[in-house]
């Protein structure tokens, strides 16, 4: 029998007060890794129903669907879980050469919110998180684990991490939130 395995399901880390820092496992979503010639990005956007961003780090969000560009010919597409089959069918009808891989079960999302969100992330991310523009995302390293970091709002970040690394990332966030709560 197959069992759904979500290492962080329902978990929450509350900081000293919710406004300063709150960390929780995100609702599960459908995720696809798309590789396509950037010249064909507009037709891929038409198939997805949301235009694809055209620069690395760029993100376009519309109608609950999000497209984030990770590399010159690489995008990650997210949508509500129920849309998964529809997206696969739409891309199957796309005539341009491309690769669309369902990675929905490979990753889990973690939401890091609050005034201290950037401070918490800074503890394990080597670039200037504060300088990251709202509405952008990128692949990077969190401690030693590869993640995709998205800045949804000034004080709201989303981490997408492979489920086998999720406990590691969660453990660090847990320790950091204690340090912040204690004012260390």
């Amino acid at each position: 029998m197959l069992l759904a395995n979500h290492p962080l399901l329902g978990k929450t880390i509350t900081g000293d007060t919710a406004s300063r820092l709150s960390i929780r496992a995100a609702e599960d979503v459908a995720r696809f890794s798309l590789r396509i010639d950037p010249a064909s990005a507009p037709s891929a956007g038409a198939a997805f129903g949301t235009p694809l961003p055209t620069r690395i780090g760029g993100m376009v969000e519309a109608g609950g669907r999000t497209a984030l560009q990770l590399g010159p010919d690489e995008w990650v597409l997210t949508a509500p879980g129920a849309d998964s089959d529809g997206i696969a069918d739409a891309f199957a009808a796309l005539q341009e050469p491309h690769s669309l891989v369902d990675v929905g079960h490979r990753e889990v999302g973690i939401l890091v919110e609050g005034e201290a969100a950037a401070l918490a992330l800074r503890s394990a991310i080597a670039f200037d998180v504060e300088a990251m523009a709202v509405g952008t995302g990128c692949r990077t390293l969190f401690d030693k684990a590869q993640i995709v970091l998205i800045r949804e709002d000034k004080n709201r970040f989303r981490i997408e991490v492979w489920r086998s690394f999720a406990d590691h990332v969660w453990g660090i966030l847990h320790a950091v939130s204690r340090e912040i709560a204690l004012g260390l």
Binding site: R55, I56, G57, G71, P72, A126, F127, C138, T140, L141
Partner: peptide, 11 residues
């Protein structure tokens, strides 16, 4: 040169 950004060495 692809990301057009300064990124940390560990990446």
């Amino acid at each position: 040169p692809y990301c057009e950004a300064e990124r940390p060495e560990v990446e």
